[in-house]
Simulated assay, not measured.
Amino acid sequence: MFAQKLLAQEPLIRSLCFFGILAIMALWESLAPHRPLLIAKSLRWGSNLGLVLLNTLLLRAVFPLAPVGFAEIATVHNWGLFHWLDLPPGLAIPLTIIALDLVIYGQHVAFHAFPILWRLHQVHHADRDFDVTTGLRFHPCEIFLSMGIKIGAIALLGATPVAVLIFEVLLNGTAMFNHGNVSLPPWLDRPLRWVLVTPDMHRVHHSIIPEETNSNYGFNSPWWDYLFRTYRATPAQGDEGMTIGLEAYQTSQQVAQLPWMLLLPFRPWG
């Protein structure tokens, strides 16, 4: 009964979590910014959040069923491993969250490893600043591919709707948190990295140096970076001295313009 009530409020829950975390991070960044911004905040935020709105509208048109809705269908038809094993919810929910987090980690690695996927993902990395909106800046084609991968994983796992809802809220919230233009004191950052990707940890991933860009792939859990040896504690130039973005676009203000972002993967030099 509780699960049914929870799922009935899915749009409200996701909206409240999204706008609540966005507001908290925006306030934190305003009160204690970690780095000065290179591009006018009004331009970047207008474009990055405009891309979020565009992606949301396109997703609703192309994928009328959200991952939670698809999980409900999988549950009704008993699709997937966890349904076949008849696992109790107390075990199936945490296993689903862990498994989906691993899928997202693997997807992220693939988007760096394969040139055709990197063309899409570089829209995220071309941002010359690093703040809460960077965590929302993805090309629509990448969003579509990610949704397809996620739905496939839900079907194979037999993920329950409640587990998927929890995972979606966690993934969205932690992505905004660990892209924040904020910093935690070392005494808190070091132990927190054992359970959660922190802003200082993920900022290394947005370094201009390729070896650093190809590290710290986790969005939610840091465990996969430790396990697969893709973890890097600090950037070579230090957290204050590292350059963010991609080398090819360091002098361009266009990286903060929505039309440029949409066209970037299709440019011959992209």
Rank of each mutant, 00 (worst) to 15 (best):
V197W: 02
T198H: 09
R14H: 07
T56H: 11
L81S: 02
N78E: 12
A71G: 02
W187E: 12
T234V: 14
R128C: 08
A153G: 03
T198L: 08
N214W: 08
M201E: 13
H202M: 09
P67C: 03
F130H: 11
W28H: 09
A66N: 10
T230R: 02
W28N: 09
L37A: 11
I209P: 07
Q107M: 13
A233S: 15
T56I: 06
L85R: 01
R119W: 06
M176E: 00
F63P: 03
I39Y: 09
F63M: 05
A74Q: 00
I97M: 12
D101L: 10
E142V: 02
L12W: 15
Q9K: 13
H179A: 05
P199Y: 09
P268A: 09
P115T: 07
S252A: 08
V204Y: 13
L263V: 10
D131W: 10
A159G: 08
R229S: 15
T75C: 05
E211W: 01
S215N: 03
L81N: 02
I166Q: 01
V195E: 08
L165D: 08
N48H: 15
D189L: 01
P88Y: 08
G245D: 01
L22S: 11
L87E: 06
S252L: 10
P64S: 04
I151H: 00
T230D: 04
W224R: 07
L264E: 13
H205P: 01
Q253P: 00
S146E: 05
G148T: 08
T75A: 15
F130Y: 15
A71M: 04
I209H: 13
A236V: 12
H77M: 03
W45T: 08
F219T: 14
A3D: 15
N48E: 14
H179R: 02
V68T: 09
I97A: 07
P186N: 07
R128G: 09
L117I: 10
A66L: 02
L54K: 05
L65S: 04
Q254G: 00
P36R: 11
P259I: 03
H205L: 01
L157P: 07
I98K: 02
L31K: 15
L16T: 06
I154A: 08
N78D: 08
K150C: 07
L81H: 04
S252K: 08
A32W: 10
A26S: 13
L57S: 11
